[in-house]
């Protein structure tokens, strides 16, 4: 019985930080459907920085909830999507965008695959050309013709 109590207490202690976190700044219940729709659209384009392979919309992390709330508040204050994205990239950098903007820093990211594709095509073209050049047609000699006819007959 005592063991059970200790375990329960331990569990409560473990859950306490989660509770504390949740109360510091809570994500409000959705009220305005128009804003929720905009938020849903925008947050699918944004990366959660805590669990980096999730969007802001999908992430259950506390930071993501904070950011969604921030976006919601800014939308209510009449900010445009563009202004909100600028607010976030000013603070967290381009990494927050799932589709990074085309800029000198991201040229390699955007155009690298196409450069690789073109390089591959060029190499393939050179290879085929080289092969074709190395195969020259030579007419059969009399001896070869005789052997071929023999094979066809048998």
């Amino acid at each position: 019985m005592k063991n059970y109590m200790t375990r329960a207490l331990l569990l409560i202690c473990l859950l306490l930080p989660a509770l504390a976190m949740a109360q510091v700044r809570t994500e409000e219940k959705p009220t305005d459907p128009a804003i929720e729709k905009r938020l849903a659209n925008l947050s699918h384009e944004l990366r959660c920085l805590q669990c980096q392979n999730q969007t802001l919309a999908d992430s259950p992390s506390d930071l993501a909830a904070d950011m969604r709330q921030e976006i919601r508040e800014q939308m209510k204050a009449g900010k445009s999507d563009k202004e909100i994205v600028a607010f976030l990239t000013d603070r967290y950098g381009q990494f927050i965008l799932y589709r990074p903007r085309v800029s000198p820093v991201t040229y390699l990211l955007w155009f690298g695959p196409f450069v690789l594709l073109l390089t591959g095509l060029y190499v393939l073209y050179q290879y085929i050309k080289h092969r074709r050049d190395s195969i020259t047609e030579k007419p059969l000699t009399a001896e070869e013709r005789r052997r071929a006819e023999e094979m066809l007959r048998s």
Binding site: V24, R25, L49, Y92
Partner: peptide
């Protein structure tokens, strides 16, 4: 920084 607003201004993520 109870509500984490200053943290957000500083781009705190971890």
């Amino acid at each position: 920084d109870l509500d984490g607003r200053v943290g957000m201004d500083y781009g705190v993520y971890g």
